[in-house]
Amino acid sequence: MDVLTGNAGVFASGFFVTFQIVLLAAVGALVLGTLVAAMRISPLPPLRWLGTAYVTVVRNTPLTIVFFMTAFGLPEIGVDAGFLRIPLLDSLFTRLGTDVPYFRFAIVALTVYTAAFVCEALRAGVNAVQPGQSEAGRSLGLTFTQNLRLIVLPQAGRATVVPLGSVIIAMIKNSALAGAFGVAGDLFQTSDELTSAQGLPAIPVFIGVAAGYLILTVPLGLLLDRIERSQAVTR
């Protein structure tokens, strides 16, 4: 217990770093995943192929490789993910703006990887919407994007909430890899620092770290349950 209370600050800062990573990556993955899903169900074959290729490649690649590609592949071609230095946002998430690019690389890796799963969760939801709904939308003269936005996705959303939530929870856990790819001081790395370098006993340290992840994942799970239940009523 002393280990936990005595190092509360270390745990808290690790938690904060991890929280930033997963928040940004979750937003990124949802946006990118929706885009890829739109491509996969688009009426234009080239877009469909592109979307399918993305999912096939990314989903079947180990996350470590994706991290490796962002951490070492991007600098190789002169990219430091500077597009993530978004004004205002980088004053909220200070690490976005630093010259150390690995925080950004971690977000890129998690976003790119998770987007493939978000896409598939969305697509499963879209497939669960009766094709007649989209046909009715199309025959009213809605464009593809209007149809997706107004008719299909709102209905897919219901079938998607739970699988999408699982994808995000998996992503939160996957974020632990960031600590092995240049990001100093995330939650998982905290454990390594306290046990390996400072020689603290492993069990209480791991309890502290696990608690950090649970703080992120459990409320999300509960929220999903609630959404699912409230939608069951309206359905």
Partner: peptide, 29 residues
């Protein structure tokens, strides 16, 4: 390398570890 004694030691020379320290799991990285 993450969790190593040298990583801890070098922190004492850094102004802001968040902006200066990069940690990997192995030295080859």
């Amino acid at each position: 390398v993450t969790g190593s004694t040298p990583a801890e030691k070098i922190k004492t020379f850094l102004k802001d570890p968040a902006k200066q320290l990069v940690l990997f799991d192995v030295y080859s990285k």
